[in-house]
């Protein structure tokens, strides 16, 4: 963990409207994960501004950042990042615990979102008892449980085979259809084609920003 700084992003100017499904593409080292981490308040920006839902995100202390993350953002990671000693339902309920939602309501909501991702009957299972695709669906349910403004997915299909990837994308498209704003970092063109807009990054700048005709994942499932 070196502390020497490195300029990764060199002038990014773009905005995302509510209800969009954006793919951020680029080769490794292009700065796409860094961009997503800044958007997710997991990392800090050195210069520039970032507004989320009309709120300027700056000078955050950890507590404030935690509250914003909890209120505005849902995360889906490439390596799932489920807590391995908690069941699927408990994992999904965790962001609600940090929102101080009551225990009963938490469980009800967690079950509701697990049902939405098709895993209701797996609620009591530990992550180690689930397949990769199931784990990612639990992670998506967890990201949805807090009812965030934006869903941020960092290579959500990176650790999955193509069939499972399409299943996960199908789920993400359905969630987007329901009105949720979603940003996906990916380096797979077929995954990017399933979004509504593709932003190409290269060496820290935007190379291309275009709307595309969405390919529905359902046809491959």
């Amino acid at each position: 963990m070196g502390s020497n700084s490195l300029h990764v992003l060199k002038g990014i100017d773009f905005s995302v409207e509510e209800g969009e499904l954006v793919a951020i593409m680029g080769s490794s080292g292009s700065g796409k994960s860094t961009l997503l981490n800044i958007l997710g308040m997991l990392d800090e920006l050195d210069e520039g501004t970032y507004d989320l839902d009309g709120v300027p995100i700056k000078d955050l202390n950890e507590t404030k950042a935690a509250n914003y993350r909890n209120k505005f953002l849902g995360f889906v990671f490439q390596s799932f990042n489920l807590i391995n000693y908690k069941s699927a339902m408990e994992n999904v309920a965790l962001p609600l615990y940090y929102q101080r939602v009551g225990r009963k309501e938490r469980q009800e909501k967690a079950l509701k979102y697990l049902e939405q991702v098709g895993l209701k009957e797996w609620a009591g299972h530990l992550p180690s008892e689930l397949s990769g695709g199931q784990k990612q669906r639990v992670a998506i349910a967890r990201a949805l449980a807090a009812e965030p403004k934006v869903l941020l997915a960092d290579e959500p299909t990176g650790a999955l085979d193509s069939k499972t990837s399409y299943e996960v994308m199908d789920l993400i498209q359905k969630i987007n259809d329901a009105g949720n704003t979603i940003l996906i970092v990916t380096h797979e063109p077929d995954i990017a084609d399933m979004c509504k807009r593709i932003v190409h990054l290269k060496d820290g700048v935007i190379l291309e920003d275009k709307k595309v005709n969405q390919v529905r994942a359902a046809q491959y499932v």
């Binding site: 935690a66 993350r69 209120k71 940090y98």
Partner: peptide, 14 residues
């Protein structure tokens, strides 16, 4: 685990 919890909105105090 602490990182995951923080990403889900846990404050340092919690």
């Amino acid at each position: 685990e602490i990182g995951i919890r923080k990403a889900l909105g846990a404050t340092p105090k919690m």
